[in-house]
Design a binder for these strands. Structure first.
Lengths: 335, 335
DNA sequence: GTGAAAGCGCTAACAT
DNA sequence: ATGTTAGCGCTTTCAC
């Protein structure tokens, strides 16, 4: 076992109290005592025991990231930023996967194992705001993505309506008129897809383009396979789209793969655009036009939010935190 | 605060001991008592306090994944499998990023914040086996990737030499004779790239093909950008390769992007192959031939290894755990 | 400026 | 089969 306070105290000939003071930087210690204690501390390679601190003080230094799956590129990139930001604040990030399953989301919210975390950053798919709020004296929670829970829960988002409208407008400006939208998720409580659809429809309406329900394609998940399936469906149905706007880069990469395999030239015959700006998109052939959310800012906003809730006092009311985004125009729409 | 054992005991009219027995499933409790206590437990929504358990028993239920970056698709997919496997064993996975930096690797090994974990799964880039072994009474450690540390440290690997040889042989069998290898990393302590190079050279030698140092390209990192840069260098130097074997899918996707952008037809003019079988590769245009390591098996092997070290007794000597792989032949080499 | 000691919630050794 | 209690390592209140 590693040395504890009592052992250090004995060796340094002082009390546990004094050693604790030195370790925690408490000011009222004689400089000479401090120095001697510090030397013993170093000699013995003292490390504060996290469990004891946690038991005593109530803080574990752990923040949980609760997401459908870490293997998804978007969540992977986000997790990277969150881990970095957490580190800066003296926290450590822990990952819990839900697979988008309601029971698992509930379990993790209630803290089956997460009980020992100081806060949660969660991207819910199956639980609605009402469910999410039902958690007696639990750790602070901040949500990622649209939730229709303004004022009830903290959540970090980009302006999905505006972003989808901008991207659709870009497609229209480059001459496309038959623009499909792939990625509706009517089965999810998470309102992100719905907002993107709204932005898409707004841009069409603004341009005076007709709105064709046959061009709005739902998907089961946001994986490449789902985008591929949607594209195959579009082609099989003989629907003559000249652009597809996918609600995630993964969907777009799947669609791009199928379109190219079908002999379509992108972007000449068909423009393809995505959402998220994950690294895969940049190196696709052709590289993918997409909406780029400011991911480091999302990570910062989420952790700032938790930090505020953990600070003494109740902090501000739960809010919708909007983070910047920009359009990243690349070869798949503007070759 | 949530209810504790004492409060439950009072309400149920028994001692803490009995409640503890019920919670932990200790057999010697009268069925009738057990039932009554369980009811109170449920009523009060009792949750064991992780910090107290940890302080008392020494187990935190946490396993740290220490890797260069979680945003990399390979590590993302692996993290997903590790999180699932950890969950099955009652562990929670925590992520620590090193950026491949030696000081940071050292820090995390010594447990700056990781001190409270039951074990570490690490992919070292900067520290050598000697450094890795220098850690007094720390948590069990299992390494991912080649380490030249047989018998000294537990590590989980695939047979990189064989895998690289098989892939190179496949390229030769499809008629390629000028095969470049992209991904040498002479600056890393991690011997993975070196073994893949060995396998590549063996296959060339077996086929009686000359070995050309100009075709062996080192890279700084394993990102798509590095693969792209290497491919650009190859083209700029006017080197007439008919295939490139990249030591990661990320490198291959970068190379593919540049080759295609240069007007090369893949695989007709140039075959491109990768390593890792990450999902991006499957949906690339054309889809990427690659070596597919059994990632779920890697996750299982790593955690089995930690579990053995944590079990009472010292367990078997540190060993090299070899996991299966197979060749995944796709359009980028065999269109 | 420093020491003594209580107590966070749990497990397990020791009693009965 | 169940009750009592020491003690894990730390922080902090209360004394001096």
């Amino acid at each position: 076992m590693t040395a504890n306070l009592r052992q250090v105290a004995e060796r340094a000939g002082v009390s546990v109290r004094t050693v604790s003071n030195v370790v925690s930087g408490f000011p009222l210690v004689a400089p000479q005592t401090r120095e001697r204690v510090q030397r013993v501390l170093d000699e013995m390679g003292y490390r504060p025991n996290a469990a004891a601190r946690h038991l005593r003080g109530g803080r574990s230094g752990l923040v949980a990231l609760v997401i459908p799956e870490i293997a998804s590129p978007y969540f992977g990139e986000l997790a990277g930023h969150l881990a970095d930001e957490a580190e800066k604040r003296g926290w450590t990030l822990l990952v819990q996967q839900t697979g988008g399953d309601a029971r698992r989301e509930r379990e993790l919210l209630d803290g089956v194992r997460g009980q020992a975390v100081d806060g949660l950053v969660m991207s819910p798919w199956a639980l609605c705001p009402t469910d999410l709020r039902r958690r007696p004296d639990a750790a602070p929670l901040v949500l990622l993505g649209e939730q229709d829970a303004d004022g009830l829960l903290d959540h970090v988002v980009i302006d999905n309506v505006a972003a989808a409208r901008e991207l659709t407008r870009h497609l229209i400006e480059t001459g496309r008129t038959r623009i499909a939208a792939i990625g509706l998720q009517p089965h999810l409580t998470n309102g992100t897809a719905a907002r993107r659809l709204t932005g898409y429809r707004q841009a069409l309406a603004e341009a005076g383009l007709p709105h064709d329900p046959a061009l709005e394609i739902p998907v089961a998940q946001l994986h490449r396979a789902d985008g591929a399936a949607a594209m195959r469906g579009l082609l099989a149905a003989g629907i003559d789209a000249d652009a597809v706007f996918c609600f995630s880069d993964q969907l777009a990469l799947g669609a791009l793969h199928v379109a190219t395999g079908h002999g379509l030239r992108v972007p000449a015959d068909l423009a393809v655009a995505g959402f998220d700006d994950v690294e895969d998109g940049r190196y696709a052939n052709p590289s993918l036009t997409t909406v780029s959310p400011d991911k480091p800012a999302i990570a910062r906003a989420a952790l700032d939010c938790l930090a505020e809730r953990l600070a003494p006092g109740t902090g501000p009311a739960p809010a919708r935190h909007i983070v910047a985004h920009h359009l990243e125009i690349r070869g798949s729409t503007a070759g």
